[in-house]
Design a protein around this nucleic acid. Structure first.
Length: 276
DNA sequence: CGCCGTACCTGGAGGC
DNA sequence: TGCCTCCAGGTACGGC
């Protein structure tokens, strides 16, 4: 579900709600949400800690704790945070973890849901976090992501362009939706061998990635089914998709029917009329 | 060693 | 209605 824009929206939402607050109580309803660590270990590590701040890295949500450790969440396909006033806790479907915050009279509950149970959260020391961070690629909205850097990445792979864009060790945070949308904006066939791109094509791809991710962040992400922000709101970018999920429908640029192909076991949507 | 198929889960959509 | 198949925003892992 969540790619960079959705994770960014969630991280900002969490920062606005829980930064500065202290964890009063943690409940782990589904042990696999914190695996391989035992629920009691996770609970003890987070209980009593104050949240210094919450940021996104790639598709990870990372909260810095007042003991210097990091509380990290990988949402995978259907992980979702929900911040609400506390209510009598009935066991809701798909509820994985609930965290009670209390600071004086300010009280709130952060709940974590996960339909498909792929999501994971853990508490990492600063060094373990640095190690995780180091194996992730360049942030595409940062100044480090230059056309030259992308050219170097693209030249290093013979895989289809779309697969390269999904590789988190190369470009961090791009997933299936935005990889396809970026290829369409750049007028590049996602099946093209990555190292076949010419310099001007790399430049188009670079600006397309930044454009689509930037606009999707502004629109607070893409809500196709499960994704919601921390307060339950939907994103708005699903109304601006050019190709993702539109197989058989006309290309908004040239009218040709959008096609679906399978690359590395995952759907790729593109227009063979204007993407070469 | 780079790349790909598969597995991990549940649930929604669509065919019959 | 029910049963079947296919598909889904991600990524770790094993194998070639």
């Amino acid at each position: 579900m969540p790619e960079l824009p959705e994770a960014e929206t969630i991280a900002r939402g969490l920062n606005a709600t829980i930064a500065g607050r202290r964890v009063a109580r943690v409940r782990v309803h589904r042990a696999e949400a914190v695996a391989p660590v035992r629920p009691a270990t996770f609970r003890r590590a987070l209980s009593g800690r104050r949240i210094e701040g919450v940021v996104r890295r790639a598709k990870w949500i990372m909260a810095t704790l007042d003991d210097g450790r990091r509380w990290v969440t990988q949402l995978r396909m259907t992980g979702r945070f929900s911040w609400r006033a506390p209510s009598p806790l009935n066991l809701e479907p798909h509820l994985s973890v609930s965290i009670l915050f209390r600071d004086g009279d300010a009280v709130g509950v952060l709940r974590f849901y996960d339909v498909r149970r792929f999501a994971r959260m853990s508490i990492l020391g600063a060094r373990a976090w640095a190690k995780l961070d180091a194996r992730l690629g360049v942030e595409p909205l940062s100044d480090d992501f230059t056309p030259a850097r992308l050219a170097w990445l693209v030249a290093s792979s013979r895989a289809p362009l779309r697969n390269l864009l999904l590789d988190q060790a190369r470009v961090a945070g791009v997933g299936n939706i935005y990889a396809d949308e970026a290829c369409h904006i750049a007028r590049l066939d996602p099946r093209r061998q990555a190292d076949s791109l010419e310099r001007r094509e790399v430049r188009r791809l670079h600006s397309a990635i930044r454009k689509v991710l930037g606009e999707a962040v502004e629109r607070r992400g893409t809500s196709l089914s499960d994704y919601r922000d921390v307060l339950g709101g939907e994103g708005g970018f699903q109304n601006q998709l050019d190709v993702y999920g539109r197989a058989g429908e006309p290309c908004r640029r040239c009218g040709t029917r959008v096609e679906r192909a399978v690359l590395a076991g995952r759907s790729a949507f593109f227009c063979s009329g204007c993407q070469v």
